[in-house]
Nucleic acid binder design. Structure first.
Lengths: 222, 222
DNA sequence: TGAGCCTTTACGGTTTCCCGTAAGGGAAAA
DNA sequence: TTTTCCCTTACGGGAAACCGTAAAGGCTCA
């Protein structure tokens, strides 16, 4: 059973609920182990480690509203930073993000122990997740949205994202080669860009650049 | 003081917090006056009205995850439906949406009594809102994001949104006139479309269609 | 070293888009 | 009815994007 848990969550209303869930699980929570900013989270963890009373579990959101300048801007960066100073700390991610691929990659690549999306019945989901972590098992919520056919038909590479981002930032297609060359990105030929865009559009059954941008924005690819 | 309050909120964790806030305000809440779906909300309100014990306050979210087919898909529709059957019911909107323009239009056009965005310290914000409504005053949270210069530089008309949406759906610019004509939207000439797009891009300092789509998606114009 | 294969680039023709100008059309006032 | 004004549409030249083909470059393996 956990004794020391830290909650990193920018929405007070959600934070309150998580605290309530913890207390219902008889995890002693002194009502001060929650923070609204990632920087505060990391500092708390550092301090606890220094004082020989390290945290055992971190429950964190992924996206934080940036109403103040911060060193650490989001949950992913926080997790990476935490893993460096205290790899043993168990991490539960509690976020609005509900794509299974994202959750899986967090568990697989960043060593996250549990993923729970904010959704209907997320409080019960959260309880189950904590109970599972206690037993040293991983937990990925069953309430995640599986990738649709269209989504896993095509995986955007960094190169693709670069091109699409440049277009979305207003750069005309014909100017992209100069940018790529300047930044040592290969290939940089205009033909390569055209061919790549054509491939993407064909695979995704998209007919023009406008629709491509819309698709990327909708699926948070850029 | 309110005695009968209904919470329409699809996130259990948030719903729990709102309930806790209500109980802290000594508003009797029997733990059953919350629903996860808009349809359920309307049915509850109808039933209470029929039985002569109408609700006094509705606290509702704006966006609901659609994991089941529903008659009413979101908070705005719910509010409109509720206002038709019980105009006296006070309404507090509690949503992630934090644009002041949206909040103002809800209060002004739909007769909403209070708007609170989900954010840091939203629980305290919520309390203040409820206390204000009790005194028969309107409440718009101070924690809203004011529209930036770019945003109020240009107001998208329905016509503009139509064109941009068609582009984002993959329709080539040259085909748009046929669509507009078929749907009796005027003007429908290609030149008018070109001129309109040019105006938008000039005002917003946008250089191509791709960037325009990105802008519209980012600002939830389409 | 050279053959084979794949990726990248160059080129040219066609389509679409962009943009300025001028013509057309409807409403209101003279 | 005519004039004026404004909005809409048509047209045409130039730029950009699209698309197929072929040449050039790079890598592996014999």
């Amino acid at each position: 059973m956990f004794k020391k848990v830290l909650i990193a969550e920018d929405h007070e209303s959600v934070s309150i609920s998580v605290q309530k869930t913890l207390s219902e699980l008889d995890i002693v929570h002194d009502n001060s182990n929650y923070v609204y900013y990632c920087d505060d989270a990391l500092n708390r963890i550092k301090k606890a480690l220094r004082e020989g009373e390290p945290y055992e579990l971190l429950i964190t959101d992924l996206s934080f509203d940036e109403d103040m300048p911060q060193q650490i801007s989001g949950g992913v960066e926080l997790i990476k930073a935490v893993k460096e100073i205290q790899p043993s700390l168990k991490i539960l991610v509690f976020s609005i993000e509900n794509r299974a691929t994202i959750a899986r990659s967090l568990v697989k690549d960043l060593g996250v122990d549990a993923y729970v999306p904010k959704a209907r019945h997320d409080a019960k989901d959260l309880k189950r997740a904590i109970e599972t972590i206690i037993k040293n098992n991983k937990y990925i919520s069953p309430n995640l949205k599986q990738a649709s056919k269209e989504e896993n038909e095509f995986q955007f590479k960094d190169f693709d994202k670069t091109i699409v981002s440049l277009l979305a930032n207003g750069m005309p297609q014909k100017d992209i080669p100069f940018y790529l060359e300047k930044n040592n990105i290969k290939p940089s030929g205009l033909s390569s860009i055209e061919k790549r865009l054509n491939t993407i559009k064909t695979v995704l059954n998209i007919s023009n650049n406008e629709q491509l941008i819309a698709h990327c924005k909708d699926n948070q690819i850029i």
